[in-house]
């Protein structure tokens, strides 16, 4: 049979669509395999860079492999532990707040005394020029958290100035910084609540609790 005749038949349409789906899926599967390792490596590199930014001091372990998973205020929290000679010196974990346009994801570092060593926003969708001053690249605002802990300022002062707290809001954007302050405060409360477990370095190095 000629291709022209065959092309009109009903079965041909099915085989054509099926064949297309098969070939494209195969191409995607191959591409996923070929890029998987590189994507993971790149993401791990990103994580390490953000660890370096929110932590101070020197550590001698691989944070990515030394994790602890605990129940936090919004579901499970993966905590990365920074050690020096086996002792947990600092912790890094993600906290998330509600901004003006959805979730604002932050990463925060905290030392064993409960003091914040650094906070960075890693993902947000706030209004450019207004809410995006929470980015370290746009404004110094996020650095105000460094050295703070629950008690300095006192718990009722952990808010933006408009709410009677100590942290600045931005002209034209209160919701965004309020969300970030609340998220960081939540992170500190999480530390206080789980302090003993977090600082107990007895779990084997290499992160048995982490997949």
């Amino acid at each position: 049979m000629k291709l022209e005749q065959l092309r009109g038949s009903l079965a041909y349409q099915g085989f054509l669509l099926g064949g297309t789906a098969l070939l494209t899926t195969a191409a995607l599967a191959l591409a996923a395999r070929a890029t998987d390792a590189d994507i993971h490596a790149a993401e791990a590199r990103d994580m390490k860079q953000s660890f370096a930014v929110v932590l101070t001091g020197q550590y001698d372990n691989d944070l990515l492999k030394d994790t602890l998973t605990l129940n936090g205020p919004n579901g499970e929290v993966t905590v990365y532990r920074a050690r020096k000679a086996g002792q947990v010196e600092a912790l890094v974990y993600k906290v998330s707040g509600n901004g003006y346009a959805g979730a604002v994801d932050c990463i925060m570092g905290i030392d064993r005394t409960g003091k914040i060593t650094g906070v960075r926003v890693i993902k947000h969708r706030e209004t450019p020029g207004l809410g995006d001053k929470i980015e370290a690249a746009k404004s110094r605002w996020i650095f105000a958290f460094e050295g703070k802990y629950l008690g300095d300022p006192p718990a009722d002062k952990w808010g933006v100035k408009k709410d009677g707290g100590v942290f600045d809001q931005f002209a034209g954007a209160t919701i965004t910084p309020r969300g970030v302050v609340k998220a960081v405060k939540g992170g500190l409360e999480f530390f206080e609540k789980n302090r003993a477990q977090l600082l107990d370095g007895s779990a084997p190095l290499g992160g048995a609790t982490h997949e």
């Binding site: 054509l16 297309t20 494209t24 191409a27 995607l28 070929a34 890029t35 994507i39």
Partner: peptide, 26 residues
């Protein structure tokens, strides 16, 4: 069936570009 065939091909190519950029130009 040309439209679904084209769309599937285009979507596949876009995904290939997406994963390539993610892997090699992160």
């Amino acid at each position: 069936v040309r439209i679904p065939v084209y769309i599937v091909i285009i979507a596949t190519l876009v995904t290939l570009v997406d994963v390539s950029i993610n892997a090699w130009a992160h």
